[in-house]
């Protein structure tokens, strides 16, 4: 009986391994794009004062983060098999850790949004929506960068540089947002909420940019 169950678990393991480790990384990279998109949709819904949409996209972001966690566990489980070479394991580990960190930050943004219902301030909402448009671009670019690092260093390098350029726009929007916020001087809880929110969004995008920089470093290491 025990022998049979062991045999079954081995079969299951083999079946699981039919998915290439490469595909796990691609799936994890796609989760970054999905999580950032959901995060942006949550912010847009907040700006439109659509609470049911806020709840819906918040839950989807949290769900994506959980799925990314499962993927991370699968990657780690297979990291020390013969699928990878010893020298590239720290770099693969770095990639999977960074993917998880960016998605974690996106989850943090939606959790923050769910913690308080602020007053609607149209000037700030416009800036927030503008921020989400750029964030979505960064999410897509980061996904492409991660996928390309496995197949085309030149393309990955170009994409990583693009992320760096776009991130500057977010930084500018962050300062504009803060200037406007302190000029409007809303109630203290609203001020605190909006101040925190823009900072967490900026941190998420900073994490994405930091990740892109790290990928540039990997490319330098491997490309002769």
């Amino acid at each position: 009986m025990l022998h049979k169950s062991k045999k079954n678990s081995n079969k299951k393991e083999k079946k699981n391994h039919k998915v290439k480790m490469q595909d796990l990384f691609i799936e994890a990279a796609e989760k970054i794009e999905i999580a950032i998109n959901y995060m942006c949709e949550t912010i847009v819904a907040l700006c439109n004062e659509n609470l049911s949409e806020v709840k819906k996209y918040s839950n989807l972001t949290i769900k994506t983060e959980k799925e990314a966690d499962r993927l991370y566990e699968q990657i780690i489980e297979r990291m020390y098999s013969r699928e990878t070479l010893v020298f590239s394991r720290p770099d693969r580990l770095y990639l999977s850790n960074q993917i998880e960190k960016v998605i974690d930050k996106a989850e943090l943004v939606v959790r923050r949004i769910g913690s308080y219902k602020p007053s609607h301030i149209p000037e700030l909402a416009d800036l927030l929506i503008e921020t989400t448009n750029i964030s979505k671009q960064i999410g897509t670019l980061l996904k492409e960068t991660i996928i390309k690092v496995f197949t085309d260093f030149d393309a990955a390098d170009n994409l990583a540089n693009k992320i760096e350029d776009i991130r500057r726009e977010i930084r500018k929007l962050e300062w504009d947002f803060l200037k406007k916020l302190y000029k409007i001087k809303p109630d203290f809880p609203d001020l605190l909420f909006y101040d925190n929110l823009i900072q967490i969004i900026a941190i998420t995008i900073d994490k994405a940019e930091e990740f892109a920089d790290g990928i540039n470093g990997l490319i330098c290491k491997y490309r002769l």
Partner: peptide, 12 residues
């Protein structure tokens, strides 16, 4: 060395 997969294949 066009990508990490190619690098690993060559190293193998």
């Amino acid at each position: 060395s066009s990508g990490l997969i190619q690098v690993e294949k060559t190293e193998k």
